[in-house]
Design a protein around this nucleic acid. Structure first.
Length: 777
DNA sequence: GAGCACTGC
C-alpha cells in the first residue's frame, strides 16, 4: 500500500513538473525537458545505447585494463602495500606481473641504452598518465654500471671522496614523493617500514626523511633537492637526477633545471670527472621549450649543440569524447547547472560527474542549487548528490568527495577547484564539466602586489581536465565554451616563475654561488626589471652587500624554509635589541601553515559563534599578535586540542602543520645559534604577551615588511607608503573596520579590491625607523 | 564592511 502510494505521489509530481518542463531553483528557471517525463529504467544498464552528440568523436571500444594509477591518489597515511610473510612470494610475482604490463616496460632496454650514452645531453621521456614512468624508470637504471659509487681523488685533497651511486627523482608534492617511494620500495623487494635500516629505496621530504642504508633510489620534493644543492652544489651523491612532472613548471623545477644544466656543462672536477645523467619526464607533449633549453644553445659560451633524446610512451587512458557548446554561454553558473542536470538525465549510471569551477564561492552556490534540484526529483529516478572539493576544506570533508555516493542509484557530482586537476584523483568519474576558467595568482612587480583573478585556462589544462573522465572507462567531457574558444586558448599555462615574485628565486641563486643572476640559464626568464627589483629588495633585507655579493645573513636566510622577508624578521628577532625569537617563531609558524588557520565560516550564526569563541586569542595589536597568541594557547592546551580548535573554528590540519614548522624552526635556530638553548617542552602555562613584547615582535616584522605599510588618510582610507595606493583591510583580518594611525600588512592582494591581509597596527614613527636600517645594517 | 587556485623548503 505504501509503495503504491509513493508511486502515485511520484507520478503526480512528475506530471506537474512535466507540464512546465522546467524547475525553478534559486530564482532561476532551468529547463529539464525530457527528464522528469522520461520513463527511465530503474536499473540503468551499462550497455544502454547512448546518443552521441554530432560533434563528438565516436567512442571506441577498448581492451585496456581498467585501473592504473601511478600517481598517488589522495593523501593516505598507509603505504600502498602491506607486508604479509605467508604470501610474500606470490605478492612479489604479482608485483612483477603488474610491472610487466605497464606500457613503459617495453621501452626498458631503449631507456637503458640511451641513458648509458648520455653525456652533456639529456633524455626527455613523455609518458602519458598511467605509463608507469615514475615508478619504473629509476628501477630500470639503478643497477647500471654507470650508477655505481665511484671512489675518486680530488686535486689538492688528501682523502678520497665518493661520487654517485644514487638516483634522485623529484616530485612537485610531498604525498607524491612518499607514496611513490613506498610503492617502488615494495616492487624492489625492500619495502619501507619501521625497523628496517636497509633498503634500496628511500625518500626525503620536509618533516619526513626515510633513506635506508644502501638506498640507490631516492624520491624527493623539488624543494628538498634545492636545499641539498645548497650543501652540495655538485650533487655528488647522485649518478643521475630524474626530474618528474616537469610540465607543471613549478618555480622550483625551473630553478632545478637551471642548476642541472650548469652541472652538465660546468666543470666536473668537483665530481671527480664523474658525469651526472639527467632524465626529464613530462606528462604532456609540449616539450619544445625543454628540448631547446637542454639543447645547449641557451648556455652562454657553448657552441656545440647537444642531443636531446625524446621518447614518447603511450599511457593508459580510456578515450574521452569532447563536447563543446555550440554558442558562447552568457551565464557560466547557469550553463554548468543545466549541463549537470542534462548529464544526470541522459547518461547511464554508474558514472559520477566532476565539475571544474572557479573557486569556493561558485562551488558553494552551485552546491546549493544542485541540492535544490535534487529535492525536486521524482522518487523513482536516480538521485543526485553534490559534494564540494577544494583545498581549504577539512580532510574529512574532502574525503567525502573520494567516497562513492552512500545510497545506491545515486549519482555523485563533485564540484571542484583546480585541486582535482593535478593534486588529487577522484575515483568513479566518467563525466567532466569544464567551465574553462581558473583563478590565477599573478605578481605585479611594479606595484609590489599580487592579483588573484579568474582567467581562461590553457589548452593543456583543458586536456588535463578532460582526462579525468577517462581514468576508469570511456568518458565524456563537456566544455562550457565553443570549439573556437578552445582553439584560441593559450597552449600552456604561464610557468610559475613568470607569475611569482622572484625574490626567493634570486636569493636561492645567490646562495648557491650564482654571481650574475641575469645570465642564469632558465627555460623562461623573468623580466630583467623584476630581477633587479628583487636584488634591491634583498639588499634592503640585508641579504646582499652593496656589490651584490651574498652576506652571511643572506646565506642564513636561504637556509631557512621561509620567504626572504620572514627570514629577515627571524634574524632581527635574534638581535639583542628585540630578543624575541621564540615569539616570532610562534607567529611565523601560524602565518605560514597553509592558507589560514582560522576557518572562514559561511553562515552568520556560525561566524558569530566562532567570533565569540575566538575572543580569547584575538588581540587588538593585529593579526600577527593574534596568531602568536593562538599558538601559545594551543601549545598550552593540555586536555583536548582538537576540541579547542573546533570551538574556535580553527583548521586542525593547519594547526598541526604550524606545530611542525615551529619544531623545525626552533631546531634550526638552535643550530644557527639564533637560540642559545632549546625551550622547555609543551605544554607550558599560558601567559598573555605584554604590550611591550608585542611591540618588539611587530617591530621585528617591520624589518622585513617596512615597504608593506600604509598610513591612514583624512578620508579614512589607508594609503601605502610604497606607491601611494589605496588599500582596504581584508575582512579576514582582526583589524578589519578599524582605523589606526598606520598599518603593516604581510600580504597585498587584488581581487575585487586592493586588499591588505595579515595586518598589524603600527605607529608612523616605526616605519621611518625600520626603513632607516635594514637587518644587516 | 565583506571573501581566497595549488604547491614547497
Amino acid at each position: 500500500m505504501a509503495a503504491s502510494n509513493t508511486a502515485e505521489h511520484a507520478a503526480k509530481r512528475r506530471k506537474t513538473r512535466q507540464a512546465s518542463g522546467s524547475v525553478t531553483i534559486g530564482g532561476k528557471t532551468i529547463s529539464v525537458e525530457g527528464y522528469l517525463a522520461s520513463s527511465r529504467p530503474k536499473q540503468p544498464e551499462a550497455n544502454r545505447p547512448r546518443s552521441i552528440a554530432p560533434n563528438s568523436p565516436q567512442e571506441q571500444p577498448t581492451n585496456l585494463p581498467s585501473r592504473q594509477a601511478t600517481k598517488p591518489v589522495l593523501p593516505d597515511k598507509k603505504a600502498p602495500y602491506t607486508k604479509s610473510r605467508a604470501s610474500n612470494e606470490t605478492k612479489d610475482q604479482a608485483l612483477l606481473k603488474a610491472r610487466r604490463e605497464l606500457p613503459i616496460w617495453q621501452h626498458q632496454e631503449e631507456i637503458r641504452a640511451v641513458v648509458k650514452r648520455l653525456g652533456t645531453d639529456v633524455i626527455v621521456i613523455v609518458g602519458e598518465t598511467g605509463s608507469g614512468k615514475s615508478t619504473q624508470v629509476p628501477q630500470f637504471l639503478y643497477q647500471e654500471p654507470w650508477c655505481r659509487r665511484h671512489k675518486v681523488k680530488l686535486p689538492g685533497r688528501r682523502d678520497d671522496i665518493h661520487v654517485g651511486g644514487m638516483i634522485a627523482i623529484t616530485q612537485p608534492r610531498r604525498v607524491a614523493a612518499t607514496t611513490l617511494a613506498h610503492r617502488v620500495s615494495a616492487e624492489a623487494g625492500t619495502p619501507l617500514g619501521k625497523g628496517r635500516s636497509d633498503g634500496l629505496v628511500g625518500y626525503s621530504v620536509r618533516f619526513d626523511h626515510q633513506v635506508p642504508r644502501g638506498a640507490r633510489i631516492k624520491f624527493l620534493t623539488e624543494g628538498t633537492l634545492l636545499q641539498e644543492l645548497l650543501r652540495d652544489p655538485h650533487l655528488k651523491q647522485y649518478s643521475a637526477v630524474v626530474i618528474d612532472e616537469i610540465h607543471e613548471r613549478s618555480l622550483d623545477v625551473d630553478l632545478l633545471a637551471g642548476f642541472l644544466k650548469q652541472i652538465l656543462f660546468g666543470d666536473k672536477t668537483e665530481r671527480g670527472g664523474v658525469p651526472l645523467k639527467v632524465i626529464i619526464m613530462s606528462a604532456t607533449a609540449e616539450v619544445g621549450v625543454i628540448q631547446e633549453f637542454f639543447g645547449n644553445d641557451a648556455m652562454p659560451g657553448k657552441e656545440k649543440a647537444s642531443n636531446v633524446d625524446l621518447l614518447r610512451i603511450k599511457g593508459r587512458q580510456f578515450p574521452v569524447a569532447i563536447l563543446y557548446e555550440p554558442q558562447p554561454v552568457a551565464d557560466l553558473q547557469d550553463a554548468l547547472l543545466k549541463k549537470i542536470f542534462k548529464i544526470h538525465v541522459e547518461e547511464p549510471l554508474p558514472g559520477d560527474i566532476l565539475a571544474f569551477l572557479n573557486g569556493q564561492e561558485d562551488i558553494e552556490s552551485a552546491q546549493r542549487l544542485v541540492e535544490e534540484y535534487a529535492t525536486s526529483l521524482a522518487s523513482n529516478v536516480p538521485k543526485i548528490v553534490a559534494v564540494p572539493l577544494y583545498g581549504q576544506l577539512s580532510i574529512e570533508a574532502q574525503r567525502v568527495a573520494f567516497q562513492p555516493a552512500r545510497s545506491p542509484l545515486t549519482r555523485k557530482v563533485v564540484l571542484a577547484t583546480n585541486i582535482a586537476e593535478t593534486s588529487v584523483t577522484v575515483p568513479g568519474v566518467r563525466f567532466v564539466v569544464d567551465c574553462g576558467k581558473a583563478k590565477v595568482k599573478q605578481y605585479r612587480p611594479r606595484l609590489g602586489m599580487e592579483s588573484l583573478l579568474a582567467k581562461p585556462i590553457s589548452k593543456s589544462s583543458a586536456v588535463q581536465r578532460a582526462g579525468r573522465a577517462g581514468r576508469e572507462g570511456p568518458g565524456k567531457c563537456f566544455r562550457l565554451y565553443t570549439e573556437d574558444a578552445f582553439d584560441k586558448l593559450q597552449d600552456s599555462d604561464l610557468p610559475e616563475i613568470l607569475r611569482n615574485d622572484v625574490l626567493g628565486a634570486v636569493l636561492t641563486m645567490k646562495a648557491r654561488g650564482i654571481q650574475d643572476v641575469l645570465s642564469f640559464p632558465l627555460m623562461d626568464a623573468p623580466e630583467p626589471a623584476s630581477i633587479e627589483m628583487a636584488l634591491l629588495h634583498l639588499h634592503f633585507l640585508g641579504a646582499l652587500e652593496d656589490d651584490g655579493a651574498i652576506t652571511p645573513a643572506g646565506e642564513m636566510m636561504a637556509r631557512f624554509p621561509l620567504s626572504a622577508p620572514l627570514g629577515a624578521v627571524l634574524l632581527a628577532a635574534a638581535g639583542p635589541e628585540f630578543d624575541c625569537v621564540l615569539e616570532v617563531i610562534d607567529a611565523i609558524s601560524c602565518l605560514t601553515s597553509g592558507d589560514d588557520i582560522f576557518i572562514h565560516v559561511q553562515s552568520e550564526e556560525g561566524a558569530e559563534e566562532a567570533e565569540a569563541h575566538r575572543r580569547d586569542v584575538q588581540r587588538r595589536e593585529g593579526d600577527i599578535i593574534t596568531y602568536l597568541t593562538t599558538m601559545q594557547m594551543y601549545a598550552a592546551e593540555n586536555s583536548d586540542r582538537i576540541d579547542w580548535c573546533k570551538k574556535r573554528k580553527i583548521n586542525i590540519r593547519n594547526m598541526k602543520q604550524a606545530l611542525n614548522i615551529r619544531r623545525q624552526l626552533r631546531g634550526m635556530c638552535l643550530k644557527e645559534k639564533l637560540l642559545s638553548e632549546m625551550p622547555a617542552p609543551d605544554p607550558q602555562p599560558f601567559t598573555p604577551l605584554s604590550p611591550e613584547r608585542a611591540e618588539a615582535v611587530i617591530k621585528c616584522f617591520l624589518r622585513g615588511f617596512a615597504m608593506r605599510t600604509a598610513m591612514l588618510a583624512p578620508d579614512g582610507s589607508f594609503v601605502t607608503i610604497n606607491g601611494k595606493h589605496v588599500v582596504a583591510i581584508h575582512p579576514s583580518s582582526v583589524m578589519h573596520g578599524q582605523k589606526k594611525e598606520a598599518i603593516m600588512f604581510l600580504e597585498h592582494v587584488y581581487t575585487n579590491k586592493n586588499y591588505a591581509k595579515k595586518v598589524s597596527a603600527i605607529q608612523a614613527a616605526w616605519i621611518a625607523e625600520a626603513l632607516g636600517r635594514g637587518v644587516g645594517h
